[in-house]
Design a protein around this nucleic acid. Structure first.
Length: 339
DNA sequence: AACTACGACAACCGCCCCAGA
DNA sequence: ATCTGGGGCGGTTGTCGTAGT
């Protein structure tokens, strides 16, 4: 039994808003506010619209001080670094960019930024492919070899383009918004969020900025996902998956279960990776029913000499949404909070 | 000129969270 | 403690304009 719809779908207008509707909504809200009830609002104004639709229209289009289009290079960088850090939490990202809406940023990412970075990343991937062919061969031959080699392998993160003209740190300086951000991300922590804040800033704005590129995650603030179940990103994927299968600890066990038993979870864990790995590869894995960790590991292994699975961004998001709240502290450790 | 493909953006859908009853 | 319903969010779809053939 599903829940009752928020409005009478049959008597509600859909599709693009007319200028008249915009004017009605705008003038009413400017005079009276929303009244704290979006559902009742359209009836008051005499609009045949769903309350949620009114809310969306107001927030994304009619609200004052909304900027549309014309994203700057700096905004690009902020969006990219936050996406890598926290995944597709558009509202959180939007909160860091005054005048931008989550919908706007989401569209911008999906239509432009993703492709822009993908193109850049693929070029670099090809370049690395040549340089790492020897190691790759070893990985294919033996998982043992892979484990031995993995200690020497440096994790290779997607290289984000950084604006060469600026050394300016993006605005993680608003203490209140940071606090809110962190509460949203993890829930449980005291006022001592400075280490996390440092971690967030360090993700991108380490000394590597001088090199005009950043290997996100290599700053060390996100190199673990659990207390005694640390998974260093320097580990090989086989090690990583082996640990998941062993399930030593609730957090890794939960992830292991997600990966090994549920295609939907697998999909979410892998979701977003197509951006880094190439859509074909990810799609193949999922469609071919390779729900076992082992098989995913094998496929990852094919590229593991080039990249380790970035268990950040959308991966993290997928896990976060499914794990119990008791794991919140582990989330924070994931973000670099003190153990 | 007509058609197609693609990109950009607006809007919808469905789920989850959470405050209040 | 449980239920209900509104708000918020992210993913997806729809629509329109434009470039290419």
């Amino acid at each position: 039994m599903g829940r009752a719809p928020c409005c009478d779908k049959a008597n509600v207008k859909k599709g693009p808003w007319s200028p008249e509707e915009d004017a009605k909504l705008k003038s009413y809200i400017e005079k009276h506010g929303t009244g704290g009830n979006w559902i009742a609002l359209p009836q008051k104004i005499g609009l045949k619209r769903c309350g949620k639709s009114c809310r969306l229209r107001w927030l994304n289009y009619l609200r004052p001080n909304i900027k549309h289009g014309g994203f700057s290079e700096e905004e690009d960088n902020i969006i990219c670094s936050l996406y890598i850090s926290i995944g597709s939490r558009w509202s959180v990202i939007a909160a860091q960019l005054p005048g931008r809406t989550d919908n706007d940023i989401k569209n911008y990412w999906n239509t432009r930024l993703k492709k822009k970075l993908l193109g850049k990343h693929r070029k670099e991937l090809q370049a690395r492919n040549k340089g790492n062919s020897v190691v790759k061969q070893e990985n294919n031959n033996s998982s043992l070899l892979l484990q031995e080699n993995s200690a020497q392998l440096q994790p290779c993160w997607p290289v984000l383009p950084l604006s060469p003209y600026t050394n300016q740190t993006p605005s993680f300086n608003d203490q209140d918004s940071i606090r809110k951000l962190l509460i949203k991300l993890g829930g449980r922590f005291s006022g001592d969020y400075q280490p996390i804040l440092d971690g967030l800033n360090n993700i991108q704005f380490s000394q590597q900025i001088q090199e005009e590129q950043v290997h996100v995650g290599s700053s060390g603030c996100m190199n673990s996902i659990g207390n005694n179940n640390q998974v260093q990103f320097g580990q090989s994927n086989n090690e990583y998956c082996a640990e998941l299968v062993q399930g030593q600890g609730t957090f890794t066990a939960a992830i292991g279960e997600m990966v090994s038993t549920n295609n939907d979870y697998s999909q979410r864990l892998l979701g977003g990776l197509e951006f880094f790995y190439g859509e074909e590869m990810i799609t193949d894995k999922i469609v071919s029913g390779s729900s076992s960790c082992e098989q995913i590991s094998t496929n990852w292994g094919e590229t593991s000499s080039l990249m380790y699975p970035p268990l950040v961004a959308s991966n993290y998001e997928g896990v976060r949404q499914e794990m119990p709240r008791d794991c919140a502290f582990q989330e924070l450790s994931y973000l670099g909070a003190p153990q």
